[in-house]
């Protein structure tokens, strides 16, 4: 029988003891959200998602949160961890809390909380739909593919990385208070099509960006850029869209 490979340091790293403080809300019994603290022992290399799973599976089964792939691809588990929007599956415990410290976890802001860490994402996806997030090209396709040069592909490389986790939009101080702002995620998605050399609806999308609810509500607070788990330079992208609207209209 082949020798099994066991990572050496799994059992040598001392575990951390942390207090996990979660903002909980049950719409059927609570008037207001309230904090609840769960003492947890975990590895520094554990993800925040592992800690939440531990609490849900062994301590408090009613704890509600979204997660799906657990690998930073599906964008389901955006939450406010230690005061900042992050994906629970991409935040390692050692990066957000010290041994013996308290880790706060809250739902993302600006959206209605359904239960515990679960929010109603409908307004977020309404804003996404508003920018027409689909490829538009009415001309007949060529025999092969619609080709792009490497430079043209580079133009939309960052904005096409978006996984729609809402970390950016719900970190925006304008989105928290201004219910009609489309938000950074929708602008990033619009950028992905506006700067796609094969797409033909550039002017329509720039017109949507030029509306009262669009790109002019951005006040460059940079919270979106700091929060993005995919490292998209969101503020740069929004500024590019602003300038594109300005040049289109002049």
């Amino acid at each position: 029988m082949a020798e099994q490979h066991i990572p050496k340091n799994t059992h040598t790293t001392p575990p951390m003891r942390v207090k996990v403080k979660i903002l909980r809300y049950n719409p059927e019994t609570d008037k207001k959200p309230h904090w609840e603290t769960y003492p947890v022992e975990a590895q520094p290399s554990d993800r925040v998602l592992d800690v939440l799973n531990y609490i849900k599976w062994y301590v408090e089964p009613s704890l509600t949160f979204r997660r799906s792939c657990g690998h930073g691809i599906c964008g389901s588990d955006a939450m406010m961890i230690a005061g900042r929007n992050r994906l629970a599956c991409k935040a390692l415990l050692r990066d957000v809390v010290k041994d013996g410290g308290t880790l706060t976890i809250e739902p993302i802001r600006g959206l209605k909380v359904e239960k515990d860490l679960l929010t109603d994402m409908e307004p977020f996806f309404d804003a996404y739909k508003a920018i027409m997030p689909y490829f538009i090209n009415e001309s007949p396709p060529p025999a092969g593919e619609r080709l792009q040069s490497p430079e043209q592909a580079e133009r939309m490389a960052h904005s096409s990385n978006c996984i729609l986790c809402a970390c950016c939009t719900t970190s925006c101080p304008i989105f928290w208070v201004n219910g009609s702002y489309l938000g950074p995620a929708a602008i990033v998605q619009a950028h992905r099509f506006i700067f796609d050399s094969r797409d033909e609806a550039t002017n329509q999308r720039l017109n949507i960006m030029n509306q009262n609810t669009g790109v002019w509500r951005c006040r460059t607070a940079y919270n979106c850029t700091e929060a993005c788990p995919r490292d998209i330079p969101i503020t740069t992208i929004i500024e590019e869209v602003k300038r594109a609207v300005m040049y289109q209209q002049s």
């Binding site: 005061g83 900042r84 802001r109 460059t220 607070a221 700091e226």
Partner: peptide, 11 residues
């Protein structure tokens, strides 16, 4: 929200 420089600059 523990934003960084940009948030405080804006505020």
């Amino acid at each position: 929200y523990r934003g960084r420089e940009g948030q405080w600059a804006w505020l």
